[in-house]
């Protein structure tokens, strides 16, 4: 089977000039979106409009830190989007954890879990930086530089393994057999590690609740 390529020519141009955006407002980055959409910076002049559902969207915007619980929703939304699709990681939290670098329940690097096409550094990035990244994305799509969804499909084992390290992927993944297998492998590894270790690596929430309290 021939390797799938990013759209070029008139398809690439149309794809670049008409990006429909699903902004996943996880963190504080959501505050920077309204000025970008409304009259001050007006991103609709590039053809970028917010869309309500992942089925219609081309661009997933992760605005800020991601907790493990939210990551599940993000991956599900990402898998529902039709190809070609693009991801922008927004702010320092998606790059290396940002100010949540030692937090127990946020993920630190977004591109271990879903393929990221562009990062915007900053805490928080100003609307100018967001517009700059959008124009860069449009330029790149026209040239066929961004191919995140192809990377995701080719390296699906890598991404699924990383996802399985932090959450249960069995019930909702598109390829359920693959998800089941990887989940079992990860659980085996984890069991071995727990046998050797003296201190548990993963703190479960239940361990922190004193006994006698209603659950």
């Amino acid at each position: 089977m021939a390797k799938e390529k990013a759209p070029k020519g008139i398809k690439g141009w149309a794809q670049g000039r008409s990006l429909w955006m699903l902004h996943f407002c996880t963190g504080c980055g959501a505050i920077e979106m309204p000025p970008t959409m409304t009259s001050r910076y007006d991103m609709e002049r590039f053809g970028i409009t917010p869309m309500a559902t992942p089925r219609q969207a081309d661009l997933l915007l992760i605005t800020g830190y991601l907790t493990v619980k939210t990551l599940k929703r993000v991956v599900r939304s990402y898998e529902q989007m039709p190809d070609p699709k693009y991801v922008i990681g927004f702010g320092s939290c998606t790059v290396n954890g940002g100010m949540y670098w030692d937090s127990y329940n946020t993920i630190k690097r977004l591109d271990l879990y879903i393929p990221v096409d562009l990062y915007i550094a900053g805490c928080m990035p100003r609307p100018e930086a967001i517009i700059d990244s959008f124009t860069e994305l449009i330029k790149g799509i026209k040239e066929g530089r961004f191919d995140g969804w192809i990377r995701y499909r080719e390296n699906i084992e890598f991404y699924k393994r990383n996802q399985a390290m932090v959450m249960d992927i069995r019930k909702w993944s598109l390829d359920t057999e693959l998800a089941e297998r990887i989940w079992n492998e990860v659980q085996e590894e984890r069991k071995k590690r727990f046998e050797r270790a003296t201190v548990p690596h993963v703190y479960e929430l239940a361990e922190r609740i004193p006994e006698g309290l209603p659950k």
């Binding site: 398809k11 149309a14 794809q15 000039r17 008409s18 053809g47 039709p82 190809d83 070609p84």
Partner: peptide, 11 residues
């Protein structure tokens, strides 16, 4: 442009 884009989507 939107319509061209939507019809050029593969899946």
């Amino acid at each position: 442009i939107d319509v061209i884009k939507l019809f050029s989507k593969k899946r």
